[in-house]
Nucleic acid binder design. Structure first.
Length: 188
DNA sequence: AGCACGATGCTCT
DNA sequence: GAGCATCGTGCTT
């Protein structure tokens, strides 16, 4: 029996949701094929206070989905070539989201492409590439299977199997945000 | 194994 | 015009 994570899952504090997403299963219907993978690495971006968060300068056209209701996808384009997949958390009006940085592919043709790496993607750009995720999914509802993108409950790892550390790629972000341990990873 | 760098285009100042 | 929540390559240890 499939259990799609409901909106109530996402409305909780972002760090709690990030922690709970480890072990959950990201599912994508792409060209009528079901692709799925276990979420193994995430990062939290929380509020206008967080100077690494896109919401640091307030609401803009780009980040407006983060201000919307929880349980939606925030997908943005960066470095001229990469799409990033985030899930929106907390109450509507409070900008926060979780970046899906890595998954272990378990279903779908793309498993072949990642088999050499043990089925794992190794960066957020690889997740979106593997699952055919782009800007057309920005704002998509993860609680509605019609969107073709959702998350199902999985087996959560034990606390001792989770590594916490600073978020990746924040070059010019001031402290404490640059080093705050808001990255969660399932130990290999 | 680790670091430096270029690709490439969109967003915000 | 600067900077970017990245990735692959090519070079150094």
């Amino acid at each position: 029996m499939v259990k799609i994570l409901p909106r109530n899952f996402y409305i909780r504090p972002t760090l709690t949701v990030a922690y709970d997403l480890l072990g959950a299963r990201l599912v994508r219907i792409f060209e009528e094929v079901r692709l799925a993978g276990t979420i193994i690495e995430v990062e939290a971006y929380i509020s206008e206070e967080d100077l690494a968060c896109h919401a640091k300068s307030g609401k803009t056209k780009r980040n407006e989905v983060m201000y919307g209701p929880p349980g939606h996808a925030y997908v943005y384009f960066t470095y001229g070539m990469h799409w990033m997949l985030n899930v929106v958390t907390e109450r509507e009006g409070y900008p926060a989201a979780i970046l899906i940085r890595a998954i272990k592919v378990s279903e779908g043709a793309d498993i072949v492409a990642f088999r050499r790496q043990g089925g794992e993607t190794n960066g957020p750009g690889k997740v979106t590439q593997a699952f055919g995720i782009n800007g057309s999914l920005n704002g998509a509802c993860l609680c509605d299977p019609a969107s073709g993108l959702w998350i199902e409950a999985g087996t959560h790892p034990a606390q001792s199997d989770i590594i916490t550390g600073p978020r990746v790629g924040l070059k010019t972000v001031p402290e404490p945000w640059k080093s705050i341990p808001w990255r969660f990873r399932y130990r290999r």
